[in-house]
Write a protein that binds this DNA or RNA. Structure first.
Lengths: 181, 181
DNA sequence: ATCTATTGCAACATTGATGTTGCAGTTGAC
DNA sequence: GTCAACTGCAACATCAATGTTGCAATAGAT
């Protein structure tokens, strides 16, 4: 039972994330149906809709945090860390396609966690600037935004590209652009 | 009266677009309140919620279409057309921040129009490839996605950057990337 | 000044989503 | 086999959003 409960809960979270990404107003009933469980079962696990959303966010934040840790953004050489980050974060973006920046407004705890993770990445971008991997005239905030945009794009609009190749494409577009030299 | 009606209708559309972009499930009541009109007045203008959304999409499509026309994507030199397109489309993205790709699914007519506009831009990107402005190893669909992502990013995450500079930033990131040569 | 269109306001009906509870059936742990 | 936990199902109450209507007030056109 305990095993079943855990599996179904996880299924609800993943299914919910997928449906909520397509349509943030997806009903609990629709999520439950898609996950193959009864509506009341979902309500027994999650006190209310907010709680379900919070659980989804937490799952995404957990995955993202592990990726940030394993990328060794402060220790590894910039190109290595960048590639490891990309290869890790792209599957996370695909598995939890919910837009955290928009949907976590009402959850201060999750927002704070997200801010912290965001700051780690921004620090990394700053290091890339400082160590001369980015052009001197590039604003760090803009570089950060570009990287995020490229990750989202490859993750959601090209779901068939496998993570290593996706990371290559993003890093290449980010650093070299798509134009002729 | 006719003038008032038109002004209020426009105000509802713009306000609605802004609120719906932040939260696609924003209620008609909230939109009406933000636009400074009564809820019933909105219902008199738009038969139902769908009709309001359709009107917002149509307004965005109208603006985007004008930008595509004026950019002369098929006639002008690639760099010129690209810059004109960017400088025009960024204000459109800001004024109508709704995500058309996601929210227009249920409106086949608007979807078709969007597809047509999308095809025009894809054709332009293909021309940029053919004429040697993009690296030969670059997939046109990926180039297209990157351009879209950069436009969305500068439009919504850097609303203070004025259109000409924003266009410069996007074109620069798109063609040259952010890394050192 | 009169007429007409439009608005705000209040009231109402309807619908869909949310959340709760009781009960019977199932399943895994022991 | 027994027990405890979990599930599906049905029923219910509640609430927010939607959409409608009638009426009085207002403002622009003539």
């Amino acid at each position: 039972m305990r095993a079943d409960a855990a599996r179904n809960l996880s299924s609800v979270l993943r299914t919910g994330a997928r449906l909520l990404a397509e349509d943030p107003s997806t009903s609990m009933a629709a999520i439950a149906a898609a996950a193959g469980v009864d509506r009341t079962t979902v309500h027994r696990r999650f006190a209310n809709r907010e709680a379900l959303l919070r659980a989804v966010f937490q799952a995404k934040l957990d995955s993202a945090e592990r990726v940030l840790d394993e990328a060794r953004l402060t220790e590894a050489p910039v190109p290595v860390a960048l590639h490891r980050y990309l290869e890790g974060i792209i599957p996370v973006a695909r598995e939890w396609p919910v837009d955290t920046r928009r949907m976590m407004q009402k959850d201060p705890e999750a927002s704070a966690r997200r801010e912290a993770q965001s700051a780690r990445l921004s620090t990394f971008i700053q290091r890339a600037c400082d160590e001369g991997y980015l052009r001197a005239d590039i604003d760090a905030a803009w570089a950060r935004a570009v990287l995020d945009a490229l990750v989202d794009s490859i993750a959601h609009r090209f779901p068939a590209v496998d993570p290593p190749q996706a990371a290559d494409l993003v890093a290449d577009a980010f650093l070299r652009g798509l134009g002729v030299t």
